[in-house]
Amino acid sequence: MKRSSVVPAAAILATAVGLGAVLGYHPSGGGATASLPASVKVGATAGVGAGASAVGTDQALAGGLGDIQVRVSAKNGKITSVGLAKLNVHGPQSAQITGSVVPQLIKETLSANGGPIQAVSGATYTSQAYAASLQSALDKIAATGGTNAALGTSNGNGGVLSNPGGGGDGGSGDD
């Protein structure tokens, strides 16, 4: 029987705050500013953690469905290099997409440095930890307004990359 399930390991459920709480608010620039509920404050933005090492290895592109690598490295919030990781496109029209998309993929990844990114998708405490996480997040919204996570907007400085969980240890960096 096929199934996916979650190991209820207590160790990984402690301080489950993967849903890093922050409620950011961005008026659209027209001058009007909506009032927020009293319990809600604007979250601070945060850049990529300083000191991230630049990593990138090169691998020649093969033809057709060959391996193509894309990897970005960031330092002080700036993407410093585009390295390579294999990209194999799955599907009957792989050849087309491999040829046309991958160079743009690299370009796009780099251009993230100059354009706003509103969020980062990544694995966090999901599934069984959801309830505790969500409650924690909501409590933090109510209590503090949150200080974690980033909501990149139109500030134009680019590099507004948020770590959704806040830290490499899996916690959300605000506690």
Binding site: V72, A74, I117, S121, G122, L161, G168
Partner: peptide, 11 residues
């Protein structure tokens, strides 16, 4: 951004 699973600060 899609997080690099091997590095929290990379996309």
């Amino acid at each position: 951004g899609i997080r690099d699973p091997l590095a929290a600060d990379r996309l």
